[in-house]
């Protein structure tokens, strides 16, 4: 049986803007001051997704390993820029160690999922590699931002405790062990929570998208299970790697804590 997909026409797409108008009306009525943001957000949604759609059509048709891996690299760089911009620890240089840790952990998980679990041939087949990499990077980008923010704020606010450990002879690893553990946990909890609630609290976007486009729900569910566990794995890998690297950068020679309260 060929799955019957109902395509969304241009007029129908425009009609969907009624929901934005509703939000705009709420903003006007309640003086929320969100009109401009709503307008920009809507335009960006249309433009960015249209561009992405055309880009994907092009990339899928070309089937080039170089282009696929180039897109993968660009996605990581964009995520790196977002995470790095959000963290407030300019006393420590993190850009390149973070890039290395993100590249390795994302590459390992993406290649295992596409090449081994899904069995795409070749393993970099863009139709699989790019969406899966996108989910991994997008998801763990948030985890990284949460973990790093927690790491830096705790190292600053608990500087006395860290230095107390150092004064008793602890090395940087021992002195920051509890803080590092808390930071990694903070980053991982959202993806673990997502596993707890999936199928009960919410239906994930990927599965919903596949079902809407006519894929057998049982196939969609299998994909979704792989996605959920891969997200936990990639989040754990990248968070642990980046937090450990960041911790090393927060201590100078002689295990001196470089981060200071009130300094960014």
């Amino acid at each position: 049986m060929t799955p019957q997909i109902i395509a969304i026409g241009s007029w129908q797409l425009l009609f969907s803007l009624i929901f934005v108008l509703l939000a705009g009306a709420a903003s006007l009525t309640w003086h929320l001051g969100l009109g401009r943001s709503l307008l920009v957000g809507t335009l960006r949604t249309f433009a960015q997704l249209a561009l992405m759609g055309y880009a994907l059509v092009f990339i899928f048709r070309l089937e080039s390993a170089t282009l696929t891996l180039g897109v993968f690299g660009a996605m990581i760089l964009a995520a790196l820029q977002i995470v790095h911009g959000r963290i407030k620890a300019h006393q420590v240089s993190l850009l390149w160690p973070m890039f290395g840790a993100m590249l390795v952990s994302y590459a390992v998980v993406t290649v295992v999922v596409t090449g081994v679990i899904v069995g795409a041939k070749p393993w970099w087949q863009p139709q699989y590699f790019i969406p899966i990499a996108g989910m991994i990077i997008g998801n763990s980008m948030n985890a990284l931002a949460i973990s790093l923010e927690r790491l830096f704020s705790d190292l600053r606010s608990q500087r006395d405790l860290v230095e107390m450990h150092l004064c008793l002879g602890a090395d940087a690893r021992e002195a920051s062990q509890t803080i590092v553990r808390g930071a990694i946990r903070a980053g991982m909890i959202p993806s673990i929570n997502a596993m707890m609630g999936v199928g009960i609290v919410f239906l994930p976007g990927m599965m919903t998208g596949q079902i809407l486009s006519g894929v057998d729900p049982l196939t969609a569910i299998r994909y979704q299970i792989v996605v959920m566990v891969m997200l936990v794995g990639s989040t754990a890998l990248s968070t642990v790697a980046v937090v450990l690297l960041a911790r090393r950068r927060c201590f100078g020679s002689g295990d001196r804590l470089l981060l200071r309260a009130g300094w960014r």
């Binding site: 150092l166 008793l168 002879g169 002689g254 295990d255």
Partner: peptide
């Protein structure tokens, strides 16, 4: 550093 801080507390 650990050994120093044990002797100079």
């Amino acid at each position: 550093p650990g050994l120093l801080r044990r002797r100079v507390s």
